[in-house]
Write a protein that binds this DNA or RNA. Structure first.
Lengths: 155, 155
DNA sequence: CATTGTACCGACCGGATTGCTATGCTATGA
DNA sequence: TCATAGCATAGCAATCCGGTCGGTACAATG
């Protein structure tokens, strides 16, 4: 037993979303016309190949990557890194990023909605999160990666 | 089977956090020196009394509410509504609101942290969420509630 | 043409969490 | 004294999480 005053885990982003982002970022960093095998990515990212398989299946079906089967096969981004936002990737894997269901759409709206003031809190959070993730592209992240690398070398 | 392209539920706030906020807001709306029974709140909020009991226990132990037992007993906010932020309540129930564990503190930081660029995304989300919830008090919500009420009457 | 490396596919699984319900106890005040 | 209220704990079905296992289809290479 640990001594926490709270229950549960709060509003976490699951490994699917995080791994998907790392996977896409890895592909972005190796976006040079060649197909990259999952095995290679799995080794670099230190994530089980089998688990990554499930994740890239979703990315593939959504058309975010293209694949070539057989020996020397692999995956490649279907578009330029600058064409993918973090939001696209997270929403694909995690669904709507809204912190509560009732603000997603009309269908999920509860009858209390009119009197409900807490919903305005959730809406603000939702807007803020979307504003962030929709304005960061894989290109931004690769650039940042190289900046950090340069920093490390100069130590 | 429903036809979703994604897995899981995304970064949701659980009912504990949402109900706790509604409970505290209910107490804020009835903050007049009287102790309010759970039964009353449960009826107004349409949440099971027994479930609310579990939630208010946490709020009570954290000193957010004070209670009087026995017949005619009940709960009251321990401080002015303006003294409680949404963030205090949510963090109490849900733990840290950070979207990933590795940005919470040194202990949970992974070895990849230096090279990791995705962590900067999570940090931005974390900052934005905290900035919102820490700057909304129960007083703000009660005010908003009355505004909405006035709006409804004037239709 | 066989081998090997890859993508692709689906079943399965243990454990944790969620969102409750049920039961019962203890303290209090009318 | 007895109803009312808080307090504590157990149980539970459903879902989700974070994977594993075993296999098939396919393309390049020797």
């Amino acid at each position: 037993m640990d001594e926490r005053s709270y229950w549960g885990e709060g509003m976490r982003i699951s490994t699917k979303g995080r791994y998907a982002l790392r996977l896409m970022l890895d592909l972005a960093l190796h976006y040079n016309g060649e197909f990259i095998s999952l095995k290679e990515i799995a080794e670099r990212q230190e994530i089980s190949t089998k688990y990554l398989e499930q994740i890239i299946t979703v990315l593939n079906r959504a058309g975010f990557v293209k694949s070539v089967r057989g020996a020397q096969g692999g995956y490649m981004l279907s578009k330029e890194p600058s064409e993918f936002t973090v939001g696209m990737i997270l929403r694909l894997m995690e669904g709507d990023l809204a912190p509560v269901r009732c603000i997603e759409d009309e269908e999920n709206k509860c009858e209390r909605a009119e009197q409900c003031v807490t919903v305005e809190v959730w809406k603000k959070i939702d807007e803020a999160v979307n504003d962030i993730v929709d304005n960061i592209t894989l290109r931004d992240l690769t650039e940042r990666y190289y900046e950090k690398g340069a920093l490390n070398y100069s130590i």
